[in-house]
């Protein structure tokens, strides 16, 4: 479904701020894989997601979605394959537009935007149903501006937008990191529900090791712009946070110098 072959990216090459963000990332996701991504600050977790999404061009390597190399496509062209949810709840929705307008825009991802009316009565009914599944009461506030919603509600709407049209790959970039623990838990559970119900292929970056273990069928750990650990199946189920920390220091030769990653 998704294939990264030797993807490399260096920021500010040749300057004092040079940062080798991705140093040969290889990753192959099968259809239905739900992969959690962990790693210290600056390890390249979000960078991998941004590379897939095409936020900037990569320096070398290949990014294939469903066998098609998308590395040369621009961000908006790749959008038709991808659903994305960001860390910042403000980033995924248009605050000054209505909930149903946001959904209608997402429903047209990868399609031509014509001079037809932006939302039909039929769609409205569909969105109402979809919003009801969030159990946040948003189905009765469909014409409310998204800016009026809380961070958790916005992330839930963004999640819905990302999946309203089944994406080839769902990219979740620490999408619960800015939420309070209770809301974060809710949004995570919702993510899992949507992913399993629609049999989506997903890549979820998290700084929470326990979440990384609890969710998904596969876990990868990154360090210094490379994947240093890739476990799945039974092996993943047996993982504990302590084991992950030990593995990290074994493989990377350093301690997991990141307090945030220890918080659960």
């Amino acid at each position: 479904m998704l294939e990264l072959i030797d993807v490399r990216k260096t920021f500010n090459a040749g300057t004092i701020n040079e940062k080798k963000a991705l140093q040969g990332v290889n990753l192959h996701l099968k259809e239905g894989d739900f992969v959690t991504v962990i790693g210290g600050n600056g390890a390249g977790k979000s960078t991998v997601l941004n590379a897939i999404a095409g936020v900037w061009p990569i320096d070398s390597g290949m990014i294939k979605i469903d066998g098609v190399d998308v590395a040369h496509l621009s961000e908006h062209q790749r959008a038709k394959f991808l659903g994305r949810v960001f860390q910042d709840p403000m980033m995924g929705t248009a605050a000054t537009m209505e909930i149903e307008e946001n959904l209608a825009i997402a429903a047209r991802r990868g399609k031509r935007r014509t001079l037809r009316w932006r939302i039909s009565a039929k769609e409205r009914a569909e969105y109402r149903q979809a919003l009801a599944t969030l159990e946040l009461g948003l189905e009765d506030r469909m014409t409310a501006k998204v800016g009026l919603l809380s961070g958790g509600q916005r992330q839930a709407v963004t999640l819905l937008m990302a999946t309203i049209q089944k994406p080839k790959v769902l990219l979740l970039d620490e999408h619960t990191a800015a939420l309070d623990p209770k809301t974060a838990d809710k949004v995570l559970k919702l993510s899992e529900k949507i992913i399993s119900e629609n049999n989506l292929t997903a890549l979820m970056v998290t700084h929470n090791m326990q979440n990384a273990i609890d969710y998904g069928n596969r876990l990868i750990m990154m360090n210094n712009g490379q994947i240093i650990l890739d476990v799945s199946g039974e092996e993943k189920k047996a993982l504990t946070v302590d084991m992950l920390l030990k593995k990290f220091s074994e493989i990377s030769g350093t301690g997991f110098a990141n307090d945030r990653a220890l918080l659960s």
């Binding site: 959008a79 994305r84 605050a95 946001n102 825009i105 990868g110 935007r113 932006r118």
Partner: peptide, 19 residues
């Protein structure tokens, strides 16, 4: 027209939604 409004409201979201 809505995609133009979205562009002004949130550039990042617009690109992510294929605009």
């Amino acid at each position: 027209g809505a995609s133009i409004r979205a562009t002004g409201a949130n550039l990042n979201m617009s690109r992510a939604q294929g605009i």
